[in-house]
Write a protein that binds this DNA or RNA. Structure first.
Length: 292
DNA sequence: AACGCGGGGCT
DNA sequence: AGCCCAGCGTT
């Protein structure tokens, strides 16, 4: 399986900017944070602009959060943008501006979890690690476990399986991590897998079993979008991103009819550090809002 | 372990 | 109208 996937990767790997020869470890880390739940197609232009503006951790550390949030634009989950800046500051303060390569140090950085730490080790440093993202989980679920999709949340068994498949030497292991992810992203896709183009179709347990349906389908209902706090928060952030100066409270209140929900969302954005509120000069007037 | 957290494009 | 996306931090 590894041989076939590595061979396929040699032919079909995408040329992504964070994979180029002259990439930096910081560039890889930035890409991984942006790619946390945002598709490659939308990250690519954002990453180019971001790295041109703030090429080193120290550059991002020195930026204003408002600029960072505006540059993040509509990548989604803007708390990630704040964490990425905190991460840049931590790299500067704890590691003299150099991205660390030890798991313990990477995991201690804001916004860096098990996946991102492993990905940086593999893709920035060419080190052996266990990279287990949604793509790899799906490939292993099908090829090895013989099911349509992995369980809703990652299991210990999955991690053990993934670990057992990572090649021993650093360079091959790092390449395997990229290759197995790429197979999941391009061929072994969630919706309509292209088994006819798959290098491991011949040994795929799911295909051999006749591609049985997803057994977890009933539990997989995604959270509705319309009317959720996430939609309201998104509207508030969009208004603030596009505003030139401070935004009057009335403009924020006009975004959403449900006063209780809007207030809850504004308070949560303030708590998250995504929003700032200034009292009016005349204390009886309503406050204004801006990016922090 | 479960939940909250954006936004857009595809089927 | 769902479904999915190179997850993380909190509870």
């Amino acid at each position: 399986m590894r041989e076939a996937v590595l061979e396929w990767f040699g032919q079909h790997a995408r040329e992504l900017p964070w994979r180029s020869e002259d990439r930096s470890a910081w560039g890889v880390l930035v890409s991984e944070v942006m790619l946390q739940q945002t598709p490659v197609a939308r990250v690519e232009p954002a990453w180019r602009a971001w790295m041109a503006r703030w090429p080193e951790p120290a550059d991002l550390a020195a930026a204003s959060p408002a600029d960072v949030l505006r540059a993040w634009d509509r990548l989604g989950y803007p708390r990630r943008a704040l964490r990425l800046q905190e991460c840049a500051r931590a790299v500067v303060e704890r590691h003299s501006g150099v991205v660390p390569d030890a798991s313990e140090d990477l995991l201690a950085l804001p916004g860096v979890g098990a996946y991102t730490a492993a990905a940086v080790q593999a893709f920035a440093f060419g080190r052996r690690s266990v990279v287990l993202d949604t793509n790899v989980r799906r490939v292993l679920a099908r090829a090895v476990a013989g099911v349509a999709l992995p369980a809703p949340s990652q299991t210990a068994a999955e991690l053990r399986l993934a670990e057992s498949l990572v090649p021993e030497d650093d360079a091959t292991a790092a390449r395997w991590s990229a290759a197995s992810m790429e197979l999941g992203a391009l061929v072994c896709t969630a919706r309509s897998p292209r088994c006819d183009a798959c290098p491991v179709a011949g040994l795929c347990a799911w295909r051999a079993a006749g591609r049985p349906a997803d057994e977890h389908a009933a539990r997989r209902r995604t959270q509705a979008w319309a009317g959720t706090d996430r939609q309201v928060r998104g509207r508030v952030m969009a208004l603030l991103r596009d505003a030139i100066g401070p935004v009057p409270a009335a403009a924020v209140e006009a975004l959403w009819p449900d006063r209780t929900q809007l207030e809850r969302c504004v308070e949560s954005l303030l708590a998250d550090g995504l929003l700032a509120r200034d009292a009016a000069a005349d204390g009886d007037e309503p406050p204004t809002y801006r990016l922090p």
